[in-house]
Structure formats: structure tokens, C-alpha cells
Design a protein around this nucleic acid. Structure first.
Lengths: 210, 210
DNA sequence: AGAAAAAAGTTGCAAATGCAACATTGATTT
DNA sequence: AAATCAATGTTGCATTTGCAACTTTTTTCT
């Protein structure tokens, strides 16, 4: 599958064609959107890094998804079944495009160029999201912390086409992403180093197995 | 968001218009497809129930996804990062539509009516899959077996608009779906009954909390 | 209807994980 | 440059979970 969707081009077109779309800029740690308050919103992260975060009743924080440049997110992708708070938080300065999902297939299709093109490329955009989510599920269904770590590292290694790669997360956030206790994860990480499975220098990891 | 995609109608059209699509029928327990052997395949389950199942190296079985009528699945949704086997297994008699994802946006768009319409409705189809996957992740990131069970029951209750609902799984399969040990799950289920959170008769569950 | 297989239910014990409370290092702010 | 805050790293202990080995009940097959 080859995704030939070019978001840069699309944005250029939007800027002098469609006025139903909003572009906003957020500073580090600002809340970009809340999944409880808004509905039917569809967002594209043009620039930056952000996380979809859930806080449960016991105060546990979970990074539900991690977004980087060109990722899509928003409430259309989410059916709320819990009463937990779901927030998208900027981890650094972020540029975000907002608009209403309904607009895509209804009004704009025939009117503005931006929406027309987006409608065409939408399957690709969403599809790449599906593959991300499936990968995430693959990780989360692993039975032990060790298997989750190894699974995650293997994925990063495959993506970067190298045995050595850097973590996109702090270790604290990685624990929240893998949905395990941080100290338990640190313990397991230490064992993986001691047993010679991995090497770690700063936020760079090297796989030594296989 | 309202999904007005009518798959029945679409299939009727396909049957006398497009010859690039295959319809096959599977008996219970047959393997519908393997995610390692094939690539770029896109499937619609017209009728029946099936599971996407993973067997890991320790012999653990995980139900990665559960499909029922009108669900879509296939390798296009999946970037293989592991060497575990991923199979779609029929849990009962299934009718399945197969075709190649690439066809959707390339050749068929201008030629056959079936693909043309499917291309239009594809965002909706995939989007509903994304909401399912997000719900799944929400469950899997819960920290304890108890929270997973309660989360799952709450979701079923919300969907059926009733405090009483029936489980779509056997308990054995539910454990594989929630990615926990079956006996540990049974123990927790017993506690939930004893502590008055739920009632259970056969495969019917009633929520007693809130 | 009877046999066989699958699912449900139970339990003791070992291992993994979470929790809490720290010390240490590194980064950011004033 | 010092102070503050965040991230990393460590450990003991309690709790949860997984594993293995069963029995009982329900379903499926011939």
C-alpha cells in the first residue's frame, strides 16, 4: 500500500480556498481538544507532537495515542463509552487544522477544492490510522511487560530499518503508552540490559537479539 | 455521525456488475484468510461471525478482533511487525467478499459500479472500524482484570441500551479478547458477583452498579 | 441416547506486577 | 549560578495475575 497523500500541497490549497476550516497554534502542554465537550470534529496535526491522554478515576494516566506530523485525530474516530476524561495535549508547539467531519461528504464536496481533495484522500488517511491502531493492539495484548517492551522495540527497529533507534517517548510516557507501571517497566528494562537483549545509551536503544 | 452505507444493496449491484470480486462461503472453524501469506486483501463479512486470532510463541491465543455481519477486515488494515501467525477463523458459517484494495482507487473507479460506490462509502466503513479499535484500546489499557471486565460490560450495556445483555463470546474467548488468563478472569467474575456488582444467568449479564 | 469434546468453574502456589517511597541525575527557569 | 522541577533509576513489600491441575456442567457429534 502506497500512500501518496501530500498534506503540504493540500494545506496550500486550503489557505486560499476554504473558510470553513480553522488553523490554530498551540504551545507546549496546552490542551488542543477534549473528546467529551466536542463532537464530530476532525483534526490534522500539521506540525508538532501531541498525545491523546486519558485520566481514570484512580488518577492513572494513559497515553491512548501518540500523534506526530500529518496524523489525524478527533472525536469522529471515537465513540465515548466511558466517563473518563480524554484530552489531546500538545507536547511541543503544534499547528492544528480543525473542521467538522460532516462537511466532508455533504456540502463541501461540490463547492471547495480543499474538501473535495480531502474527501478523495480520506480513505488513505484513515487507513494509515487503522494500521497504527492495530499495531497498538498487538502490543497491548502481549501478556507481559517484557513482551510489550520487546514488541515495541522491534517495531521501532523495523520502522527505522536499524538495530539502533531513539525512543519517541520519555520512559515515563512509554510506561503510560504500554499501560504498565513505570517502576515495574524500569525493572524489566534493567533485566533486558543485564541479560544482553538490549543496550541503552540515553534515549537510544540497540537490539542485540536475533 | 450517521452511517447510511447499505451493504445489501451494494452486494446486489456487485453480483451483476463486477467480476474482480470473489464471494466465498466458509464452514465453522475454517480459516478464512491468513495475514502472513496474503497482502493487500480487503474483505467484507456479509454474513456470520469470525475472529482475527493470534497464536504467539508460548502458545497463547489472543482474539485480536471479533467480526460480525458487515465488518471489514483484511491485510490492508494491518502492518505486520511480528512473526506470529494471524488467522481469521470462522466461528460459524460465513459468507465473505474478497478483493484487492488497490483496485478501489485505481482501475475500477471509472469502470464498474460496485467499486465506484464502494470507493465513496469506504471512509464510513473504515471509520466505523476505527471507533471499534479505539474502544478496544480503551479496554486493553485498563490496568486490572476487574476494570477490563467492568469496562467491557459497560460498553455492552450502553450498546444494547439495557442493564441486561448477553455476551457475544464464550468466557474462554472473552479471556482471550481481554488478554487475561481465563482462570484469573473467572476468579474476578466470581468476586464481582459476590460483591454485588453484577448478576449472571447463562450468558446473560445484568449490571447492578450505578 | 450415549459418548466425546468443549466450556465453565475452582483452587493452591509461584511469578509478575503494582505501589510507595526513596535517591540520583538531568533539564529548565529566574 | 542556584534553585526548582521533571525524569530516571532503585528497592521492599503487598497484591494481582498466571499457571497447572483438577471437577462439573453443557454442548456437539455419531
Amino acid at each position: 500500500m502506497d500512500i501518496n497523500f501530500n498534506i503540504e500541497e493540500l494545506i496550500k490549497k486550503f489557505e486560499n480556498s476554504c473558510h470553513r476550516v480553522q488553523k490554530k497554534i498551540f504551545a507546549k502542554n496546552e490542551v488542543i481538544t477534549s473528546y467529551i465537550k466536542k463532537r464530530n470534529q476532525f483534526c490534522i496535526l500539521i506540525n508538532g507532537n501531541a498525545d491523546l491522554v486519558r485520566y481514570d478515576l484512580n488518577g492513572n494516566r494513559t497515553i491512548v495515542e501518540h500523534f506526530s506530523t500529518n496524523d489525524v485525530f478527533g472525536e469522529v474516530f471515537y465513540t465515548i463509552t466511558t466517563n473518563n476524561e480524554l484530552l489531546v495535549e500538545a507536547r511541543e508547539k503544534c499547528e492544528v487544522l480543525f473542521y467538522c467531519y460532516n462537511d466532508i461528504h455533504t456540502k463541501c464536496r461540490t463547492t471547495c477544492k480543499f474538501h473535495q481533495e480531502l474527501a478523495e484522500d480520506l480513505p488513505e488517511l484513515i487507513l494509515s490510522k487503522v494500521t497504527d491502531l492495530n499495531m497498538r493492539i498487538e502490543l497491548l495484548t502481549k501478556r507481559s511487560t517484557r513482551d510489550k517492551l520487546i514488541g515495541y522495540f522491534t517495531m521501532l527497529s523495523t520502522r527505522s530499518l536499524s538495530k539502533t533507534f531513539s525512543l519517541p517517548f520519555s520512559l515515563t510516557d512509554l510506561a503510560d503508552y504500554l499501560s504498565v507501571d513505570r517502576s515495574a517497566m524500569m525493572r524489566e528494562l534493567k533485566l533486558l540490559k543485564e541479560e544482553g537483549f538490549i543496550e541503552k545509551n540515553g534515549n537510544k536503544i540497540t537490539l542485540l537479539y536475533k
